[in-house]
Design a protein around this nucleic acid. Structure first.
Lengths: 338, 338
DNA sequence: TTGAAAGCGATACCAA
DNA sequence: TTGGTATCGCTTTCAA
């Protein structure tokens, strides 16, 4: 029974619980004298208010959730940094959930959070179709959500993205301008909005630059699959193999490097490669990888900011906080002209 | 007032709140009939118990905290994966806190967690002295803690580490066996236990192999400092510069690569490099980096397992769950013999 | 087998 | 300026 709570403080000071409570919250109608006494004792006993009693009473948890498809990936870890910074500044706690690209898990997690455990959610979708039940339930609940990077097209709320279409266009055009004639596109399922945007940019560039569009140059990989390596190897082994590759995801760019190494294809002489990536070591690769780099930290920060804005001003429209940031093409040796 | 809680369920079913509660927790002394009715309605209305009321009443939060020095680093992100897996399996929630290598922040966070918000803590220390007040407070509180990787020497509890001394010895001996005569050691402050272990391994190897020990070959860097690059550059610019480098941290290995590139030092011909690292792309670097790789996922998983073990069996001694895992030396071109 | 009520710890309203 | 008390939603003891 050495719990330090309001009751204990009140008893030791011969005050009512309510008085102590108000003294601690610096209420106007408490005399300076008692305030000081209360604060002194609270400090001495190291009083820490019980967070659950508070949350129960106030219907607010001082906690947000971050739902991610994966984490061992520089983009998401850096984004978390941005989120965490804003959360700490707002005295909020951050719960983390990883879906491992598994829609069912994503659904379970979302449902877990609709009972008031968190005041808001930051989310980057796992791959797959977007019109899912759990997203609808999420929308119907009043828990505010901000999507970042892998956003939902179907839900109206704040979304933090980058200019994916333009980046896809730019990456492809960059390859072409450096001499690639047969440009392949590596992607995952393609059901996510951002994947479609990037692909559209690729297609547009291919067609505008007058390249021949080839079905077999679009390689659709599976997340969490060991077969992707083989798929890419096949692409590179065929007659009329590509001489340029645009990887829409970091992990596929890495696979492409590994395949090239096995097949003794020289980068950039035989194949030029550009990929979406936030790798710290992109410039140290062999050869240095040309990347489309997203402002991961800022995306996390802006997403968190948008959420806290909504928490502070419940009346504002989430949609109005949508932001499109810019990714950068950083040219390195993997796309050097021959 | 469309909240779904026990009261609401009880009213709609003309039952007492306590009955409903027991039915939902599948208590023995409730008839099958009412159980079914209750479960049916609960499902229909999508009843979700209020987590705070539960936590308040049960004095358990179903939540653990993970305190990390940083996150944009493959080791820690992978470790989180391991932690998260175990937590999800136990139906626990995971709070994340990042100290950014800042002791004051670490102290604030730890104190924040001593009020019952979490049932247990997983922690990897931020750099600096270990005998700090907040660690003492943590120990005195009854919140169970498991340290992983950057463990505390002074606190007795479960610790998950790798064989740091042996790894340091092995890395250094490896450089020497590949022909390095002047082996430098790059590290951070050196106040953490694991840093000291690694350094001791280095020293032991240097002395056993009969190399000359040189004070100036031990380069002590500062976390979060831009000057580290310059420090390493200085090391490599001096007469009698090292021809082998052991980086005790991934980020310092990367800096070494960058410095070598600027100074036109060839790896491994002019300088051989080995570093602690969990980089996915180590084998794709120019040249591929020889690494000491820690079993990050397993470390996270074992740490979480140890914590849950302690939560389930409060009587067991935490110390007994200490585990030392093995890191691997993966030889690549950066340490090839000339 | 079910119901009533106390209590977890903090907040806020109403009285005094 | 302070005290008493109801309340948040759930669990559990005691009674019926």
């Amino acid at each position: 029974m050495d719990q330090v709570n309001l009751k204990r403080l009140a008893k030791e000071l011969n005050l009512a619980i309510s008085t102590v409570s108000r003294a601690l919250s610096d209420s106007y109608d408490i005399s300076e004298g008692t305030k000081k006494k209360v604060l002194a004792l609270a400090k001495k006993l190291n009083y820490q208010p019980n967070p659950f009693a508070r949350s129960l009473r106030n219907r607010s948890s001082k906690t947000i959730a971050v739902i991610l498809p994966e984490i061992a990936n520089n983009y998401f870890s850096v984004a978390i940094n941005g989120i965490e910074e804003v959360a700490q500044a707002n005295n909020y706690h951050v719960l983390i959930y990883i879906t491992h690209e598994n829609l069912q898990k994503e659904a379970d997690i979302v449902r877990l959070l609709l009972n008031g455990r968190v005041d808001g959610i930051l989310m980057s979708l796992s791959g797959g179709p977007e019109d899912t039940d759990h997203l609808k339930e999420l929308q119907e609940s009043k828990v505010p959500v901000v999507f970042f990077d892998r956003v939902s097209d179907t839900i109206e709320t704040a979304k933090i993205t980058t200019n994916n279409f333009e980046s896809g266009y730019l990456a492809t055009s960059h390859l072409i301008s450096r001499g690639s004639q047969r440009v392949a596109y590596l992607t995952y399922s393609g059901e996510l909005s951002i994947e479609q945007q990037r692909m559209k940019g690729y297609m547009e560039s291919v067609s505008k630059r007058g390249l021949l569009f080839r079905e077999e140059f679009i390689v659709c990989c599976n997340r969490n699959s060991a077969e992707n390596y083989e798929k890419i190897k096949e692409l590179f082994s065929a007659d009329g193999r590509p001489d340029g590759v645009f990887a829409s995801v970091e992990s596929l760019a890495i696979l492409a490097y590994e395949v090239c190494s096995e097949l003794n294809l020289r980068i950039p002489e035989d194949v030029k490669i550009v990929g979406f990536s936030n790798l710290r070591t992109a410039s140290l690769l062999n050869p240095a990888l040309t990347t489309i780099t997203q402002p991961a930290f800022n995306m996390g920060r802006e997403a968190a900011k948008a959420l806290f804005e909504a928490l502070k001003k419940p009346h504002i429209k989430m949609e109005d906080q949508t932001i499109v940031l810019r990714s950068n093409l950083i040219e390195r040796r993997s796309t050097a002209a021959n």
